[in-house]
Measured scan of single mutants.
Amino acid sequence: NKFNKEMRNAYWEILLLPNLNEQQKRAFIRSLYDDPSQSANLLAEAKKLNDAQA
Results as ranks from 00 to 15, higher is better:
residue 20 L to D: 00
residue 39 S to Y: 15
residue 26 R to V: 06
residue 3 F to S: 08
residue 16 L to M: 12
residue 26 R to E: 01
residue 11 Y to A: 08
residue 49 L to T: 12
residue 2 K to F: 12
residue 34 D to I: 15
residue 54 A to L: 06
residue 11 Y to N: 01
residue 5 K to T: 01
residue 28 F to W: 07
residue 24 Q to N: 07
residue 30 R to D: 02
residue 39 S to T: 08
residue 17 L to Q: 08
residue 8 R to N: 04
residue 48 K to A: 07
residue 27 A to E: 02
residue 13 E to Y: 15
residue 38 Q to F: 10
residue 3 F to R: 04
residue 42 L to A: 06
residue 47 K to W: 09
residue 46 A to E: 00
residue 50 N to M: 02
residue 18 P to I: 07
residue 54 A to G: 11
residue 42 L to I: 11
residue 16 L to E: 05
residue 24 Q to E: 06
residue 24 Q to M: 07
residue 53 Q to I: 13
residue 28 F to T: 02
residue 1 N to G: 11
residue 6 E to N: 04
residue 52 A to D: 12
residue 14 I to F: 03
residue 46 A to I: 02
residue 17 L to R: 02
residue 1 N to H: 04
residue 26 R to F: 10
residue 49 L to N: 06
residue 39 S to W: 14
residue 24 Q to F: 07
residue 48 K to W: 15
residue 37 S to L: 08
residue 26 R to L: 05
residue 48 K to Y: 10
residue 15 L to S: 07
residue 25 K to F: 06
residue 50 N to D: 08
residue 50 N to P: 01
residue 13 E to H: 15
residue 44 A to F: 15
residue 24 Q to H: 06
residue 4 N to P: 15
residue 24 Q to Y: 06
residue 37 S to N: 07
residue 41 N to T: 13
residue 32 L to E: 00
residue 2 K to L: 07
residue 23 Q to H: 09
residue 44 A to M: 12
residue 14 I to V: 06
residue 7 M to H: 03
residue 5 K to I: 02
residue 20 L to A: 01
residue 17 L to D: 01
residue 42 L to D: 01
residue 3 F to E: 13
residue 31 S to V: 08
residue 51 D to T: 12
residue 7 M to L: 12
residue 15 L to K: 14
residue 37 S to T: 11
residue 54 A to P: 08
residue 11 Y to T: 06
residue 2 K to Y: 04
residue 45 E to K: 14
residue 21 N to W: 15
residue 39 S to G: 05
residue 44 A to D: 10
residue 13 E to T: 15
residue 27 A to P: 03
residue 52 A to F: 12
residue 34 D to T: 08
residue 49 L to H: 09
residue 13 E to P: 01
residue 26 R to S: 03
residue 36 P to E: 02
residue 38 Q to H: 09
residue 31 S to D: 06
residue 47 K to Q: 07
residue 26 R to T: 04
residue 11 Y to V: 13
residue 18 P to K: 13
residue 54 A to V: 12
residue 42 L to E: 02
residue 32 L to P: 00
residue 27 A to S: 12
residue 42 L to V: 10
residue 13 E to W: 15
residue 51 D to A: 10
residue 16 L to T: 11
residue 8 R to S: 06
